[in-house]
C-alpha cells in the first residue's frame, strides 16, 4: 500500500507534463542545399552578385544580386523535375533537377511535409564547370546536397 502514493503521484506528474499542447517547432520545408566551389582549387567560394529564380517564375527571385557561398533551392512537390536560372554576374546557367517527391507525416502539429530523392542534375556550362551530387536525400536542414564548381 505504501507504494501506491508515490506511484500515483509520479503518474500524475507525467500526465501533467504530457498534456502540454505542442506547437510545431521543426523545420517543415526541405531545400536542396548547394555549395559553391572553385573549379581550380576545389575550395569553397562566395559569389558576389548571384541571382536565382525558377524557370517561368522570373517575377519571383529566390536570390537577387546576393553575396553568398551557398544557395537553398525549393523543389516543386507537384512534379518530378524543376529548373532554375542561375546568374553569376553577366553569365547565366540553367539547372534542372530530377527527383522523386516523398510525402511524410511529421506530427499532428506540423502535418505532412515533402522530402525529395534527387535522381539527376542537368546543367549548362557557361559559368558552371561541374556539379557533384553529395547527398541525394533532400530533407529539412542544412546538409549540403550538391557542390557547384565555377
Amino acid at each position: 500500500m505504501k507504494l501506491i502514493y508515490p506511484l500515483l503521484t509520479g503518474l500524475l506528474v507525467l500526465l501533467h507534463l504530457s498534456c502540454t499542447e505542442q506547437a510545431c517547432d521543426l523545420d517543415t520545408e526541405a531545400f536542396l542545399n548547394a555549395g559553391f566551389y572553385s573549379a581550380e582549387t576545389a575550395e569553397a567560394i562566395s559569389l558576389d552578385s548571384l541571382t536565382i529564380y525558377g524557370i517561368n517564375r522570373e517575377d519571383s527571385l529566390i536570390y537577387s544580386m546576393a553575396n553568398t557561398g551557398k544557395a537553398a533551392l525549393p523543389l516543386d512537390p507537384s512534379g518530378e523535375s524543376c529548373s532554375f536560372i542561375i546568374k553569376n554576374g553577366d553569365r547565366t546557367d540553367t539547372l534542372s533537377f530530377q527527383y522523386i517527391p516523398e510525402m511524410i507525416f511529421l506530427s499532428t502539429a506540423c502535418g505532412y511535409i515533402y522530402n525529395y530523392r534527387l535522381a539527376d542534375v542537368i546543367y549548362s556550362l557557361n559559368a558552371i564547370e561541374n556539379i557533384l551530387i553529395l547527398n541525394e536525400n533532400v530533407k529539412p536542414g542544412d546538409e549540403e546536397n550538391i557542390q557547384i564548381f565555377f
Binding site: D76, P77, G111, I113
Partner: peptide, 18 residues
C-alpha cells in the same frame, strides 16, 4: 486516411492526399 493535404512553397500551392 488523410485528405486535403496542402503544401505551399515557392512553386505555389500543391494539394495531395493519403
Amino acid at each position: 486516411e488523410a485528405a486535403g493535404i496542402i503544401s505551399e512553397n515557392y512553386w505555389g500551392e500543391h494539394t495531395s492526399s493519403v
